[in-house]
Simulated assay, not measured.
Amino acid sequence: MIIETEELKIIPLNSKQLLSYTEGNQLEKELRIHEKDRFMSETVKMKILSKILKNINEDEENFYFYTFWIIILKKENEIAGEFCFKGKPKNGRVEIGYATFPKFHNRGIMSKSIEKIIEWVFINTEITNIIAETDSQNLSSIQVLKKNKFKLFQSQANNFIWMRTK
């Protein structure tokens, strides 16, 4: 499954692709997209190798709730950012996380990506609420959520929790 717009391809990585994603530019080579200096912390890599791949392999039918989704900017043929669900939905609610790579900041890429993913979620699943957490100082992320009709749900210390309802 791929979500596409005129400018973007949003691809949930299967277990083989996700493993390649942890190995430098291996995924870029396999997908024949522009290789870049993409950094993955050891913490994230270990989480993928020890937990996320296990979850995907144990629940292949719902792999898209565990894996990373890459956002490819078609014009540049390059990965511009990442998206993920933070596990399967519970009581009709799911949490999301996302990041745009620095080279692609302030271009509206994540706003458009989140819009298309929300559309997909509300059409193809039983999810009725989507949650996202941001640092209270992360104005770019807050703007992405506001553009996509998320409302402030809770605030805790330096974090805001946002919710989008179907």
Rank of each mutant, 00 (worst) to 15 (best):
I96G: 08
F68V: 11
I72N: 02
T100P: 01
E119N: 14
L139V: 15
E115A: 14
F101R: 04
N124D: 05
F63T: 10
Y98N: 05
F101W: 07
N124S: 07
I109N: 13
I79H: 00
F85L: 07
T67N: 03
Y64E: 04
T134C: 10
I130K: 03
I71Y: 07
S141I: 12
C84W: 00
A99Q: 04
W120F: 15
G87M: 02
G97I: 04
E78F: 01
K75E: 15
K146T: 13
N106K: 11
W69S: 12
F65I: 10
F65N: 06
I142D: 02
F68Y: 11
P102G: 06
I123G: 08
K112T: 15
I70E: 03
D135L: 09
Q143F: 11
C84E: 05
F101M: 08
L139T: 09
N106R: 14
I127W: 03
I72V: 15
K75W: 12
I123P: 00
M110V: 12
A99Y: 02
R107N: 13
L73Q: 14
N62F: 09
I79A: 02
S141V: 12
C84H: 06
I130T: 03
N62S: 11
S111L: 12
I70L: 06
K90W: 02
E78A: 06
T67I: 06
M110I: 13
E115D: 15
T134K: 05
T100A: 07
N148M: 06
I127H: 07
